[in-house]
Measured scan of single mutants.
Amino acid sequence: TTYYDVLGVKPNATQEELKKAYRKLALKYHPDKNPNEGEKFKQISQAYEVLSDAKKRELYDKGGE
């Protein structure tokens, strides 16, 4: 599973699309609303952290993490 899959976006997604997808999923899986989905929330946050940063995203796209 790639970070793009976690957020449900395509690899060519814009920053705005990433932000929108992250917010939607973060609300859905937030531990306050969904106590059993803490791990999913962490995955979503990690994916967004990497993909929202241009340098980290470039490194990730080249095969790094």
Score class of each variant (00 low, 15 high):
Val50Asp: 03
Tyr22Gln: 01
His30Pro: 04
Phe41Ile: 04
Leu7His: 00
Gly38Trp: 15
Glu17Ala: 07
Gly63Ala: 13
Asn36Trp: 11
Lys24Ser: 12
Thr1Lys: 13
Leu27Gln: 13
Ala47Val: 04
Tyr4Trp: 04
Glu39His: 10
Ala54Pro: 15
Asp5Thr: 08
Glu39Ile: 09
Tyr3Cys: 05
Gly38Ser: 15
Val6Ala: 06
Lys56Arg: 13
Lys33Met: 14
Arg23Val: 13
Glu16Leu: 10
Arg57Gln: 02
Glu37Ala: 12
Gln46Pro: 01
Leu59Ser: 09
Thr14Asn: 06
Pro35Asp: 07
Tyr60Ser: 03
Ala13Met: 02
Gly8Asp: 05
Leu51Phe: 01
Glu39Leu: 11
Lys55Ala: 13
Ser52Arg: 09
Lys20Asn: 15
Ser45Leu: 15
Tyr22Trp: 08
Asn12Gln: 08
Thr14Pro: 04
Leu27Ser: 12
Lys56Asp: 05
His30Val: 05
Tyr4Pro: 00
His30Ser: 11
Thr1Tyr: 14
Ala54Trp: 09
Asp53Gln: 04
Leu51Lys: 00
Lys10Pro: 13
Gly8Asn: 07
Val9Ser: 02
Gly38Leu: 15
Gln43Thr: 09
Glu37Lys: 07
Lys42Cys: 11
Glu49Cys: 14
Glu17Phe: 03
Arg57Asn: 03
Ala13Gly: 02
His30Tyr: 05
Asp53Gly: 03
Pro31Trp: 05
Ser45Ile: 14
Thr2Cys: 15
Lys40Glu: 05
Ala26Ser: 11
Asp5Arg: 06
Lys20Pro: 01
Ser52Tyr: 06
Glu37Phe: 15
Thr2Trp: 09
Val6Ser: 03
Leu7Arg: 00
Leu7Tyr: 00
Val50Gln: 04
Asp5Leu: 06
Gly8Trp: 03
Leu51Ala: 01
Leu7Gln: 00
Leu59Trp: 13
Thr1Asp: 09
Lys24Cys: 13
Leu18Gln: 00
Glu65Gly: 13
Ser52Glu: 03
Gln15Leu: 14
Lys19Pro: 00
Tyr60Thr: 03
Leu7Met: 05
Lys20Trp: 12
Lys56Pro: 02
Arg23Met: 15
Ala26Leu: 15
Tyr4Arg: 01
Tyr22Gly: 00
Thr2Val: 05
Tyr3Thr: 01
Lys28Ser: 08
Glu16Arg: 10
Gln43Tyr: 09
Tyr22Arg: 01
Asn12Ala: 06
Ala21Glu: 04
Lys62Ala: 12
Thr14Ala: 03
Asp5Cys: 08
Val6Glu: 04
His30Trp: 05
